[in-house]
């Protein structure tokens, strides 16, 4: 699923490892989400949106 995780992360100068630690997932999971190979669960999607101070709809593009 298309998403803005990489843009949001790099805008805050965060590494994948730092974001992964904040989300309590592996760095590879963040990488897979950014490369659109893995669609996160609803709890993780909400956690990502809250972490970036935005909405799930603005982070993830369900229509893509």
């Amino acid at each position: 699923m298309k998403n803005a995780v990489r843009d949001l992360r790099t805008a805050r100068k965060l590494s994948q490892q730092q974001l992964a630690a904040a989300m309590q997932v592996s760095r590879q999971t963040i990488n897979s989400i950014e490369k659109e190979r893995y669609t996160p669960s609803l709890p993780l999607a909400i956690a990502l949106a809250r972490y970036f101070g935005t909405t799930v709809e603005e982070v993830f593009d369900a229509d893509s």
Binding site: S26, T29, S32
Partner: peptide
């Protein structure tokens, strides 16, 4: 990562 996932540590929802 494969060995870590098979072995236990590093597992999360994707694993």
């Amino acid at each position: 990562e494969t060995l870590q996932g098979l072995g236990g540590p590093g597992r999360d929802e994707r694993w």
